[in-house]
Design a protein around this nucleic acid. Structure first.
Length: 946
RNA sequence: GCGGGGAUAUCAAAGCGGUCAAAUGAGCCAGGCUUAGGACCUGGUGGCCUCGUGCCUUCGCAGGUUCGAAUCCUGCUCCCCGCACCA
């Protein structure tokens, strides 16, 4: 059977499911419910193997829960909020080759490309195709509930407005100051996607240090630094001789001041809510040799020339801390070379006396980190740029993370803590101010260089709120995590999370209800929408104006009274919400723990009563492909469509879930996927083999098979409950197959087909969450009606469980192996004799068992046994004890003599079929040969009789 | 650097103090079934031999605890996720 037929078969079953409305979730009073979700995908592309894994974890769990008798709600929707689609559409408009290439890769024909200039077309194009790909996998989603986000969907829009209004009224959305990357030409923030240079660059907070200029009251030299904790090591200031600085009148918190800064800096300050008025110019060279009062240390330092000051970076003036800044150390070093000061026009005596001051100590670099690193790296001058940049990074890291302050009010404290304290002290006393600078150059797509702008009207969700955090911790306590070991990460994130800027000026989304200039940002409008899933299918066509405050308050919170809405049974909506909520399982990749999944918890705590807080959260790793990390550059990002086309839905489903579990990165194994096809056919053939014959026969091995199945069911159920799907697959597919094979071999053609049928039936149900199409097919072959997809999960028959039977079969198998091995070495014996172990060995086992209750020390055990009559067996006993101590067979697992004989007798027929000879079972004493004495309890000696 | 998760045989991945040379699957090798088969079945797959109640070497590296460590402890190295205003 080829792949085409497989896909036809899969399609047929999917059609059947749809026809039967198998996955349409309808509340059923008295039936327990299970509500599971994964984050709706962003629709700027098609699903790939990474999405598949997250979806499949929910899918397998959803199907499992159906077998367990739960009424399952498994919905899916589409996310379009945010800027990527808008930006991409703009790029298409501009004719961007890269963007158009991406569309082509996604299967868009050339003539349709222009349509993608419209953001809405992206959604219209990708959402149905995404759905198509996902449907081909056979996901059991209730598609009646699909929807799209943003104002394009006025009903959803109304819901998000309600959510934010609710948060706002609780005081959890507040306005504040916020630095953004800004294009001065377009007067708009420049998102990552809208940059031609500088993706990933962000505003960074610098401290502006203010140096009162000697002899000019009210005038300050301003230096920007990222390391305010190093002020105690300041020895001088650096300026560029040829840089044109400006004198600017700046209104500071302590009145009018005159600042000397670069012209570019003055402009930047204007964007950062500072009143700045340029009143004059001053050249760098004019400042040389002057002195200014260094903040915090309160001593004057000279202004010296350097070649690394840039008017575009900071203020163009740099404070010099030669002990901890490699640039400064080399600048000083250069100036102290013979003749250098004179050449620069600086009196030698100013320069000669300057020495680095030890201020921070770290174990690796000592207390003169910059001096040390320059030596280590062989840096020769301030022009050795590449090396200096590297050195700066190292010194900064070591200093910040491992350093301890040596001087100042925080001497003895780690730099990490002292840094913020020093900064705050200087800010409070007016010796410093803050300033934002980009981490790197950013150029807007309009080719204008971007700057940092402080916006003061940004809205924040106040995740930093202590009370809210407390509540969320409490909510987390009530959440079952899959796997549980992700809990620590969640606890950490709840504490770490701070206020989140939740509005944007650009992109798609919902407008902030009380401040319509703003759009709600994409990570913020996806935090409580699971509630919307419960009612979406009933309100899709309602006039959105009716979906007001009162409506959602009543339906989702039970507040107030039901509004009267023509054609809508509001009470029924309320009932449906109450039936499905809370969310029982939400699954996502581990990268979303630090934002989305935690936001989800926070928002539920804020909006809903405790009974509706989330019950379960799943976290999974990142898919690797054939052992390699998935990436565009490796070209191994496999679209879901390609997988179903090549392997079929079932093989795809099973392979991806077999790839891994827990938070490990799962691996997609193409070989495994390719082999499954044949294995499925074998499974179906087995189903055919047991049909027709329902006559109850019985073999001695039946009880073992029953026990083995019961144990498998138990273990598989445990694994499923913990979303350990890989384990479940291994057990349900491979372990059960092994057991069935052994049963067939062991019964030598005389199987109890009724029992086999029962086992296969149970196996099909347990595999149905993973390979439902094959299982439906097998289910019918077994002669069953209805769908295996909703068949009850097999119960664990605890009465059938008997570990002794496993030991029996293990023994029989071992004996069979031993016989075969002996036969290989010997030509045509007349018969096979099995000699049971001598009685004293069994006694020794028992004595050993007894002895281990007091000690596990071999020497002591031997001593105890030597005190018994067993001592007569001398060296042989010693050998036995050594064997047992090393962990040979456990004495308690060994059968009694009577039992062992019984077991062997019952398996005699099988053993004879293996040997092709008569098999005799004898006592050790029945023969003289040394070989016959070799038997151990549970492991008879095999002797071939000529 | 910090928080979290990891490192097991050719590969993927179980194991988490003694039944561990280590489940299972893939790959590879040999054999069977077949007109043929990337199907299916059987066996093998760290090394050595006296083929066993055998010996040696192995579970990131180095130490330690223990009669006994892949499993526990300490230190180190490396990998993945995150360290945010972005989907």
């Amino acid at each position: 059977m080829g792949i085409e037929q497989t896909r036809e078969r899969e399609q047929r079953w999917q059609d059947e499911w749809n026809k039967a409305k198998l996955f349409e979730a309808v509340p059923k009073e008295g039936t327990p419910k299970f509500f599971c979700t994964f984050p709706y995908p962003y629709v700027n592309g098609l699903p790939h193997i990474g999405h598949l894994f997250t979806m499949m974890r929910v899918e397998a769990f959803a199907r499992y829960k159906r077998h367990r008798g739960f009424n399952v709600l498994f919905p899916q929707a589409w996310h379009a909020t945010g800027s990527p689609i808008t930006t991409a559409a703009m790029r298409v408009t501009e004719g961007d080759a890269k963007q158009i290439g991406i569309l082509k890769e996604n299967g868009v024909p050339d003539h349709e490309i222009p349509l993608f200039k419209d953001p809405e077309h992206w959604i219209a194009y990708f959402s149905p195709r995404y759905k198509q790909d996902v449907s081909a996998v056979g996901l059991s989603i209730d598609w009646r509930r699909e929807f799209i986000t943003t104002s394009l969907n006025p009903q959803y829009d109304a819901f998000i407005r309600w959510q934010f209004t609710t948060l706002h009224e609780k005081g959890l959305v507040q306005q504040g100051r916020h630095p953004v990357v800004w294009c001065p030409k377009e007067s708009a923030p420049v998102s990552d996607h809208a940059r031609s240079v500088g993706e990933g660059e962000t505003p960074q907070e610098f401290t502006l240090l203010k140096f009162p200029l000697d002899g000019e009251i009210g005038t300050f030299l301003i230096a920007a630094t990222l390391r305010p904790e190093t002020v105690y090591g300041q020895t001088n200031l650096w300026v560029g001789k040829d840089i044109e600085y400006v004198k600017a009148r700046v209104k500071g918190p302590h009145g009018q001041e005159t600042w000397i800064i670069s012209a570019a800096c003055a402009e930047k300050l204007l964007m950062q809510e500072r009143a700045v008025e340029v009143i004059g110019k001053v050249k760098g060279s004019e400042l040389l040799g002057k002195r200014a009062m260094a903040p915090a240390v309160d001593r004057t330092v000279p202004v010296l020339p350097s070649h690394f000051c840039s008017p575009d970076k900071g203020t163009g003036i740099v404070t010099s801390v030669p002990s901890d800044a490699p640039d400064d150390w080399m600048g000083l070093h250069d100036l102290q070379q013979p003749g250098a000061a004179e050449k620069e026009g600086i009196p030698l005596n100013i320069v000669a006396d300057i020495k680095p001051i030890a201020i921070i100590k770290s174990s690796d670099l000592g207390d003169m980190a910059a001096v040390r690193i320059c030596e280590d790296m062989g840096i020769k001058s301030q022009h050795d740029r590449a090396k200096l940049d590297e050195a700066k990074k190292v010194v900064y890291k070591k200093g910040f993370y491992e350093g301890t302050m040596l001087v100042g009010p925080y001497a003895g404290e780690p730099v990490q803590q002292a840094k913020d304290k020093m900064k705050k002290d200087m800010l409070d006393s007016g010796k410093a101010e803050t300033f934002y600078e980009l981490t790197g150059k950013v150029v807007c797509r309009c080719q204008t260089q971007s700057v940092v702008k402080i916006v003061s009207d940004q809205w924040f969700v106040t995740y930093g709120d202590a009370e809210w955090k407390r509540k969320t911790h409490h909510a987390l306590d009530g959440v079952t995590l899959y796997p549980e070991k992700s809990r620590q990460q969640f606890e950490y994130v709840i504490d770490w999370l701070n206020d989140w800027a939740c509005t944007r000026e650009y992109g798609l989304g919902t407008r902030l209800p009380w401040d319509e200039r703003w759009l709600i940002e994409s990570l913020s409008d996806s935090t409580a929408y699971m509630a919307y899933y419960t009612i979406v299918h009933s309100i899709k066509d309602i006039d959105p104006k009716l979906l007001d405050r009162r409506f959602f308050d009543y339906v989702l919170l039970g507040k107030g009274t039901a509004p009267n809405m023509p054609g809508v049974d509001v009470e029924a909506l309320r009932a449906e919400f109450m039936y499905w909520y809370p969310v029982d399982f939400r699954n996502s990749g581990k990268d979303l723990v630090q934002n989305h999944l935690t936001f989800f918890l926070f928002n539920h705590c804020a909006i809903f009563p405790e009974e509706h807080w989330p019950k379960g959260i799943g976290v999974n790793g990142w898919v690797t492909v054939n052992g390699q990390k998935m990436s565009k550059s490796l070209g191994n990002v496999i679209p879901v469509r390609k997988l179903t086309e090549e392997y079929g839905a079932d093989a795809t489903r099973m392979t991806i879930l077999n790839g891994g579990e827990g938070m490990d990165d799962p691996n997609w194994d193409s070989n495994f996927a390719g082999n499954l096809h044949g294995k499925f056919e074998t499974l179906l053939r087995s189903c055919e083999d047991v049909t027709g014959n329902t006559e109850e026969t019985s073999t001695p091995v039946d009880s073992w098979l029953r026990s083995s199945m019961a144990s498998s069911v138990q273990h598989i159920t445990d694994a499923m409950e913990q979303t350990n799907f890989r384990t479940a697959i291994q057990l349900a597919f491979f372990e059960i197959n092994h057991a069935l094979k052994w049963y067939v071999v062991r019964t030598a053609g005389k199987q109890n087909k009724k029992l086999l049928r029962e086992c296969l039936e149970a196996q099909l149900v347990m595999l149905a969450p993973f390979i439902p199409h094959v299982c439906e097919e097998g289910w019918r072959k077994l002669g069953n009606d209805g769908f295996v997809s909703v068949a009850p999960w097999p119960a664990v028959d605890t009465s059938a469980l008997d570990p002794a039977l496993d030991r029996r079969e293990a023994m029989v198998r071992q004996v069979a192996d031993d016989i075969q091995r002996q036969l290989e070495k010997s030509a045509a014996p007349a018969s096979v004799q099995l000699f049971l172990a001598a009685d004293w060995k069994r006694e020794a086992y028992a004595a050993f068992d007894e002895a281990t209750k007091t000690t596990r020390n071999p020497a002591e055990i031997m001593k105890l046994l030597s005190a018994t009559p067993l001592a007569a067996h001398g060296p042989e006993l010693q050998r036995l004890v050594t064997f047992l101590v090393k962990g040979g067979r456990q004495p308690q697992d060994v059968p009694s003599a009577v039992q062992e004989r019984e077991w062997l007798e019952s398996a005699r027929e099988y053993l004879e079929s293996i040997a092709g000879k008569k098999v005799e079972i004898l006592e050790a004493g029945a023969a003289e040969s040394p070989k016959a004495q070799n038997g151990l309890p549970g492991k008879p000696a095999v002797v071939l009789q000529k």
